[in-house]
């Protein structure tokens, strides 16, 4: 029996890497919960009842979301500890960027007046000053910290991909921006759209990065 048991013993499994499904579901659930609080408040206001303070819903949703993510990633702590310091910095930077992006995205959803469609999220519609200031601070601080961590963590190959991607993104701005500007001044084009140029540089940057990294 003992020898049979010994034969049945399996090799210790390597710690499993965290996936994307559960973190996505947790973030989505937190956003939905915050939306439910916002919906409750809107319904209560319409009915003339007392509403909750506007920060209660987002705070509870954020706390539950962060708690859920913490519990999920704690299950994979062994995987994280087995990584080299460079890999740890890499995944910390990506995780931080995802959290900051998730918070800004969730906050943007909550900041929309009721009745607007999902497509309106990325329009040039009015935003509240609180969101505008908060999201700007989060974007700048999150990007600064995340990028320092990220660029200290990437290897030579990925650094080269980023250098070419950054250069291509720069040219994607430098070529069209003055052309569009002078064409507009001659009434031959609509006003220059900062976000269109931003999107173009991001798309070119991402395409070149992915080409050099994964071709």
């Amino acid at each position: 029996m003992a020898s049979k048991d010994r034969m049945m013993v399996t090799e210790p499994q390597e710690p499993r890497a965290p996936g994307f499904v559960w973190p996505t579901l947790i973030c989505f659930g937190a956003i939905m919960l915050a939306g439910a609080f916002a919906g409750y408040n809107a319904a209560a206001a319409e009915a003339g009842d007392a509403t909750l303070a506007p920060w209660i819903g987002p705070l509870i949703a954020a706390a539950l979301g962060i708690g859920g993510l913490f519990l999920y990633f704690r299950r994979h702590a062994g995987w994280f500890r087995a990584l080299s310091p460079r890999q740890r910095r890499y995944w910390t930077a990506l995780g931080l960027s995802a959290v900051v992006g998730g918070i800004i995205g969730g906050w943007l959803v909550l900041d929309q007046p009721t009745g607007r469609s999902a497509a309106d999220l990325f329009s040039s519609g009015v935003l509240s000053p609180g969101f505008a200031i908060g999201a700007s601070l989060l974007w700048v601080a999150g990007l600064a910290v995340g990028m320092v961590l990220y660029h200290r963590a990437i290897d030579d190959h990925e650094e080269r991909a980023w250098l070419w991607a950054g250069l291509a993104g720069w040219y994607a701005f430098v070529f069209p921006a003055p052309v569009w500007w002078v064409l507009h001044r001659a009434a031959l084009a609509p006003p220059v759209s900062v976000m269109a140029l931003f999107l173009l540089t991001m798309l070119v940057n991402a395409a070149v990065y992915l080409w050099f990294k994964f071709r």
Binding site: S84, D155, D156, H157, K213, F214
Partner: peptide
């Protein structure tokens, strides 16, 4: 890649001649 502390894509790119490693690597 693990022994070199680089990504698997870096090893593949060097092997296929798409990327010449830096002098330290």
């Amino acid at each position: 890649a693990q022994r070199l502390d680089v990504s698997r894509q870096a090893v593949n790119a060097i092997e296929t001649g798409k990327y010449d490693p830096s002098l330290p690597l």
